[in-house]
């Protein structure tokens, strides 16, 4: 018994001495084992992909000013050289502001040319992807109200004032698969009153898909597609509607993001482009569009730590 104890003590001491002579590298490795945050950042560079929202929200106290243009048809009856391939026309214009109340909650306001639509939205990052296996994906919830401010086209329109309002709800599920590739799926639901086609239901289910492929550190290929036809929408409508598809390049330079896109959707805001995309990629209905986004930090940080206080002169 005593002999066993001595042997254990001997082993222990042997370990002590060898451990002190351990390589600095393996010690460093064990010391910094849990020093890296498990969160996966920058799933997308911007809060939008092409037409659709990405799972990203604004950083706390950051204000994003966003200007977006959709031009006219490149080809077909309204396009070609007579309209300079659509650049003479603007099918929709948008200016909006997104503000981060916290890193996870963003509120936004915007105005579109089409229908003089004002939109008010809230976006909340509920679940965040972790690289330690605890959470495989991000989940962001998005809700947007649209308010049509234009005069009625005829007496039967907007009889009830609430007919001017529409609501869009969406769950954005995304995953950063690698440094280059991020994908997302977005089930959504649109509620509205202002329906132009007699057979069309007021409410529509949507299912969106979007992705980003980084080409360089600051340049990405982005694309999104929203299923509207083929879900709850009936097939026998007087007007032919198409599913919106957008592709583009996104360039990030510090606080600016420039997005150059091609898409068949005439309109910019979900409450407009989900129910009313009447153009197709097949017959020249595709158009050019761009976004300029600029981030401003609104409040000076109250950070007391002088090692972290940045300053712009």
């Amino acid at each position: 018994m005593i002999y066993m104890k001595t042997r254990l003590l001997f082993l222990f001491l042997l370990l002590t001495v060898t451990a002190s002579a351990q390589e600095a590298d393996s010690l460093l490795k064990s010391l910094s084992a849990d020093s890296l945050p498990p969160t996966v950042d920058a799933v997308f560079k911007s809060t939008r992909v092409v037409l659709s929202h990405s799972s990203e929200t604004q950083k706390k106290h950051d204000l994003d000013m966003r200007i977006r243009h959709h031009f006219g048809d490149i080809g077909g009856r309204f396009g070609s050289a007579h309209t300079f391939y659509g650049l003479d026309l603007a099918s929709d214009l948008f200016i909006g502001f997104d503000y981060g109340i916290s890193d996870d909650l963003t509120v936004a306001i915007g105005r579109s040319k089409t229908d003089e639509l004002f939109n008010f939205s809230g976006k909340y990052k509920l679940l965040k992807q972790k690289n330690n296996g605890a959470m495989p994906a991000n989940l962001t919830l998005f809700a947007q109200m649209g308010w049509i401010a234009r005069e009625p086209f005829n007496a039967s329109e907007f009889v009830d004032y609430t007919d001017r309002f529409s609501y869009f709800l969406q769950a954005i599920i995304s995953r950063k698969f690698s440094q280059r590739l991020s994908l997302e799926v977005m089930p959504g639901f649109l509620l509205r009153k202002n329906v132009s086609d007699a057979n069309e239901p007021e409410n529509l289910f949507t299912l969106g898909f979007a992705g980003r492929m980084k080409l360089t550190k600051r340049l990405s290929f982005v694309a999104d597609y929203t299923l509207v036809n083929g879900l709850s929408r009936p097939k026998d409508l007087a007007t032919t509607y198409y599913n919106p598809l957008g592709v583009g390049l996104e360039i990030e330079t510090g606080g600016h993001i420039f997005s150059l896109n091609f898409m068949n959707a005439e309109y910019i805001i979900e409450n407009n482009f989900i129910p009313n995309t009447r153009k197709s990629w097949n017959d020249g209905g595709v158009r050019f569009g761009f976004t300029i986004s600029r981030n401003f930090t609104l409040f000076k940080s109250k950070n007391k730590d002088s090692d972290k206080q940045s300053k712009i002169y």
Binding site: S35, P37, N295, K308
Partner: peptide, 22 residues
């Protein structure tokens, strides 16, 4: 030996921190 986890460096501005890392 001294080792810094790069992502643990905190900036005043989170967007700047994201760009620093990315």
């Amino acid at each position: 030996a001294v080792q810094v986890p790069v992502k643990s460096l905190e900036f005043d501005r989170k967007l700047m921190q994201e760009h620093f890392n990315e």
